[in-house]
Amino acid sequence: MSHTQSILVLGAGELGMAVLRSLARRAASSPGVSVAVLLRQSTLQSSDAAKQKDVTELRSLAIELVPGDLAAQSEASLAALFRRFDTVISCTGFVGGKGVQMKIARAVLEAGVERYFPWQFGVDYDVIGRGSAQDLFDEQLDVRDLLRAQDRTEWVIVSTGMFTSFLFEPSFGVVDLGQNTVHALGSWDNAVTVTTAEDIGKLTVEIVFAEPRIVDEVVFVAGDTVTYRQLADAVDAVLGHKARRVEWSVPQLQSELAEEPDSAVRKYRVVFAEGAGVSWDMGRTFNARRGMAVCSMEQWMRENLLASEGVSLL
Score class of each variant (00 low, 15 high):
Ala184Pro: 08
Ala234Ser: 12
Leu70Gln: 09
Gly96Val: 05
Thr43Gly: 07
Ala197Pro: 05
Val221Tyr: 05
Ala12Cys: 13
Leu141Glu: 04
Arg130Tyr: 11
Ser279Gly: 12
Gln134Lys: 10
Ser90Trp: 03
Arg284Glu: 14
Glu259Leu: 12
Leu167Asn: 00
Ala72Gly: 14
Met162Tyr: 04
Trp188Ile: 14
Ser74Arg: 01
Gly277Trp: 00
Leu70Asp: 03
Glu110Ser: 07
Glu303Trp: 06
Lys242Phe: 06
Glu211Ser: 14
Tyr116Ser: 08
Lys53Ser: 12
Asp236Asn: 13
Leu44Arg: 07
Glu14Leu: 13
Ala191Gln: 14
Ala243Met: 12
Ile63Leu: 06
Lys242Cys: 11
Glu298Gln: 02
Val175Ile: 12
Thr153Ser: 01
Glu309Asn: 03
Pro170Ser: 04
Leu305Glu: 10
Leu185Lys: 08
Phe286Ile: 00
Ala184Gln: 10
Ile214Gly: 14
Arg244Asp: 07
Asn190Leu: 13
Phe94Thr: 10
Gly277Ile: 01
Ala184Arg: 05
Val158Gly: 02
Val271Lys: 04
Val37Leu: 08
Gly112Asn: 07
Glu217Leu: 14
Ser60Ala: 14
Cys91Ala: 15
Ser165Ile: 13
Ala12Val: 05
Ser308Gly: 14
Met297Ala: 07
Met297Gln: 08
Leu15Asn: 05
Leu136Asn: 12
Gly11Cys: 12
Ser2Val: 06
Gly13Met: 13
Trp155Lys: 02
Arg269Lys: 11
Asp216Phe: 05
Ser249Phe: 03
Ile63Asp: 08
Glu298Met: 00
Tyr228Glu: 12
Ala243Asp: 00
Arg302His: 03
Val311Met: 07
Phe166Trp: 11
Arg289Met: 12
Arg26Ser: 13
Ile7Asn: 01
Leu20Ile: 15
Ile63Val: 15
Ala276Trp: 13
Val182Asp: 03
Leu253Arg: 00
Thr164Arg: 07
Ala72Thr: 14
Trp155Phe: 11
Asp135Asn: 09
Val123Thr: 08
Arg284Thr: 11
Gly201Val: 14
Trp188Leu: 15
Ser132Leu: 05
Ala107Tyr: 01
Glu198Arg: 12
His183Cys: 07
Tyr116Gln: 07
Ser2Gly: 06
His183Asn: 11
Arg269Cys: 06
Arg130Ser: 08
Asp216Thr: 04
Ile214Pro: 10
Glu217Phe: 11
Leu314Asp: 13
Ala80Met: 04
Pro118Asn: 08
Tyr116Ala: 06
Leu306Val: 07
Thr87Ala: 06
Ala273Arg: 06
Pro170Cys: 05
Ser34Asp: 01
Leu20Phe: 09
Glu211Tyr: 11
Lys103Trp: 02
Gly93His: 04
Gly112Phe: 10
Val88Ala: 02
His3Val: 04
Thr160Leu: 09
Thr285Val: 11
Phe117Ser: 02
Val194Gln: 08
Gln252Leu: 06
Phe220Arg: 10
Thr225Lys: 09
Gln41Asn: 09
Asp54Gly: 01
Phe163Ser: 08
Lys103Ile: 02
Ala50Asn: 11
Gly13Trp: 14
Glu64Arg: 10
Glu169Tyr: 11
Val158Gln: 03
Pro118Gln: 08
Gly277Lys: 00
Asp216Trp: 08
Val66Tyr: 02
Met102Lys: 01
Val194Trp: 05
Ser132Gln: 09
Gly310Pro: 03
Asp189Arg: 15
Leu44Cys: 07
Ser255Phe: 02
Met282Cys: 09
Met297Asp: 00
Ile157Pro: 00
Ala222Trp: 07
Gly112Cys: 08
Arg213Pro: 11
